[in-house]
Design a binder for these strands. Structure first.
Lengths: 197, 197
DNA sequence: TACTTTTGTGAGCGAATACTTACTAACATT
DNA sequence: AATGTTAGTAAGTATTCGCTCACAAAAGTA
């Protein structure tokens, strides 16, 4: 498997990095530890990435690439109602997190990235991407009369995005013990009751 | 822990730390930098705190102490409606963040603290505290017929908390350029429209 | 004044950090 | 067979990290 811009070895490295962040936190992502995980020398890592920063940048862009694809597929299903599309996006995101919990750790590390321009821009890009898609679905729902239009689509999508994030955060803080899918469905049902006319 | 337990010098140190985190991020909070900010030697800091960790613990416990007090005052205003109480809590939190943005950096660093038991417990405590208070207000609103009760108070409070957090996160990612209070009000107004009968 | 306590210092410790260098073995292409 | 490329290594570099120690000035107290 090769995602065009990355070599197989790069993907292996990024996956090891993701796993390490998930297991021990982003502070424990050091070149030394990462090299040990892959049973490689530290220098070998620099054959594939020219800095630690570019490993993390790669990580994020790899996830964004995959996410873009996933969300786009849902958005393009013109026969689906806005409600169904929201449900699918929620379900698609949560199931991705369930399958690859490590990515959640990376996304929730944006606090650390704040003063790393490249990385924080990447996190912002990801959030904007999701926000844009949510807005377009909600607008469609407001136009066809499914959703109420007393509240702007931007505000509604902020609320939805925030609620989804909070659900994931709680799941993470519970040590993945809570039922992410069930809790996510409960929250989305609540949100839909609130915004449907 | 309470304020009285801190000496004047300790508070000076914690405030310098707060300022530094706000300006340059939590990664730039080092003993060396902090000492330089206070024009002190590194060793001098260890006269007042026995570790860097205890400086951060002090920071958090100081904020939690202050938050508990602030929220309790609002909760105890029995003559206020649930809607007014929600507005006050939102406003109170956002204004605190505005005055001490560093605390946001700390709260949004739960990813870093995940493997520091003491610090992560403190962050969890803080979230539970807020959630508990939100639930009690919403229940009150549901009982007196202000809020709809088709959705459980727990779910509603998750949605509110998540929306608030998302607003703060966006402010943070914008480099404190966006208008936190204005955006917060817009989101809260939206939320209230959704949950009021 | 004589003492005790508090608050400071400079020098330096061991460990960790991201990254570099000179070199090598395996493989692919011609 | 000759040659260039890829992917690895051991052993460093310079720097930073949190933290400690022996000691001294300053401040409070008898």
């Amino acid at each position: 498997m090769n995602t065009a811009q990355f070599t197989d070895r790069q993907i292996e490295i990024m996956e090891a990095a993701t796993l390490r962040i998930d297991k021990y936190g982003i502070q424990e992502l050091t070149i030394k530890n990462l090299a040990a995980d892959l049973t490689l020398s530290e220098a070998a890592l620099y054959r594939h990435f020219n800095s630690k920063n570019s490993i993390m940048l790669g990580l994020l862009s790899y996830f964004i690439f995959e996410m873009k694809d996933r969300i786009k597929t849902i958005i393009l299903k013109e026969n689906k109602t806005p409600t169904e599309q929201l449900k699918e996006i929620f379900s698609s995101q949560l199931n991705t997190f369930l399958k690859k919990p490590a990515i959640v750790s990376v996304i929730f590390s944006e606090g650390i990235f704040q003063f790393n321009k490249e990385l924080s821009e990447m996190v912002s890009t990801m959030m904007d991407l999701m926000q844009t898609h949510l807005v377009s679905i909600i607008k469609k729902g407001q136009d066809d009369g499914t959703f109420q239009d007393l509240i702007s689509s931007a505000t509604i999508s902020t609320i939805i995005l925030g609620s989804m994030r909070m659900t994931v955060l709680k799941w993470k803080l519970s040590g993945h013990k809570s039922d992410l899918i069930k809790d996510g469905n409960t929250v989305l049902k609540g949100l839909l009751k609130m915004i449907e006319k």
